[in-house]
Structures are given as C-alpha cells and as structure tokens.
C-alpha cells in the first residue's frame, strides 16, 4: 500500500550517518535508509537488531549434518550392510567427507533461501525503493509523513546537508 514519504537525498556516507544520528535524536522515526553499498555502522545508528541469519545458518547446518549421518548409517549399516573383506559395514571415518559436504550444502542453500525470503527478494519482484539513483551514487533517507511533520522534517533534512528533499507517494 502506498504512503506519503519525505525523501532526503545525500551525496555521501558521512553526511548521511550524521543526519541519521540527528534525525533520530530529534525523535523522528526513520522508515528506512537506502545506500549504493553497505555503509558500516548504519544499522547500529538506525537501531536495527543484529540479523538472526547466523542462527538460521547454524540450524540448517545441524539439519544437514544430521541428514547426512542418518542417511549413510541407514543405507550402509541397516538397509544393505555389505561385507567387504570382513571390514565393518559402518566405517564412520569414511562418512566424514560426505557429511561435511552435505552440511555445507544445506547450510548455504538454507541460509541464502532464508535471506531472500526475509528481504522479499524473489525473481521478478518489483524493487521498492525511493529513488533509482540509490543503486548508483545517492544515499536516501525515507521518513513517513504523518500530516503534521512535513515542514519540520523537510527543513531538518535540508539543514543536515541533504542535496535534495522531496515528498513522494510510493510503496516502500
């Protein structure tokens, strides 16, 4: 659903970081910030919690490892044990490589899948962004307009070094 946003466009990361600090200090809620590359410290300034993706990755890793061990043990030890020169059917050191590979495979696929779904990045999706230049050289801050804050926010952004400030109705 589209809403009205006030968009501040910045030319570089330092003024942007400074502005994020000031805008948050003034009590205004920032909807989201858009940058052409990962700006370090921006997520902390915006008060974002640490991503839970590493935990998801760990769980996928446990799943992969369990699957691999169960599969090999069941196939070679239970379902069809083979007598190869009297050696044990369950030779667990031989299971290390495949267990490792499957752990890595399922962790990578699971984590990347989670990442894409969490961000709503699905093939063919429309990009929800305030300005096409944020994938090139501009840094944008989007603040939701609530009817009373428009003038104050605009002048604050201008004061903080925004190159342009405009109001747009769009879906973010």
């Amino acid at each position: 659903m589209s809403k009205h946003y006030i968009i501040g466009v910045f030319g570089d990361e330092e003024p942007l970081l400074e502005a994020v600090k000031e805008v948050r200090a003034s009590g205004t809620r920032i909807h989201e910030v858009y940058t052409p590359f990962p700006v370090h410290g921006l997520d902390e300034l915006l008060g974002y919690k640490r991503s839970r993706l590493p935990k998801a990755a760990f769980l996928f890793g446990c799943l992969g490892f369990t699957l691999a061990i169960t599969m090999q043990t069941w196939m070679l030890g239970i379902d069809w044990p083979m007598n190869i020169g009297g050696k044990p059917a369950l030779a667990w050191p031989d299971f290390v490589p495949v267990s490792f590979e499957l752990t890595v495979l399922i962790t990578a696929l699971g984590m990347v899948g989670t990442y894409l779904v969490a961000c709503d990045f699905i093939p063919g999706n429309e990009a929800k962004m305030p300005d096409l230049r944020v994938t090139s050289d501009k840094f944008c801050m989007a603040i939701e307009r609530d009817g009373t804050n428009a003038a104050a926010v605009t002048s604050l952004l201008n004061k903080l070094g925004a190159e342009e400030v405009h109001e747009k109705e769009l879906e973010l």
Binding site: P38, V39, D43, L53, T107, N125, M129, T135
Partner: peptide, 24 residues
Amino acid sequence: GFFSFGWNGSAKAWQRFESVSLIL
C-alpha cells in the same frame, strides 16, 4: 529487473547481505 529479485539497497537488506556474505 527479473534477475535482480527486487533489490532495493535498504539498510536492512545490506545488513543481511553482509551477514550472509560473511557466513558463506
């Protein structure tokens, strides 16, 4: 547009991106 999956360069997306890159 199809192949870029709707990437928007948001701070949240970059945070997750960095996390995924590091673990990968």
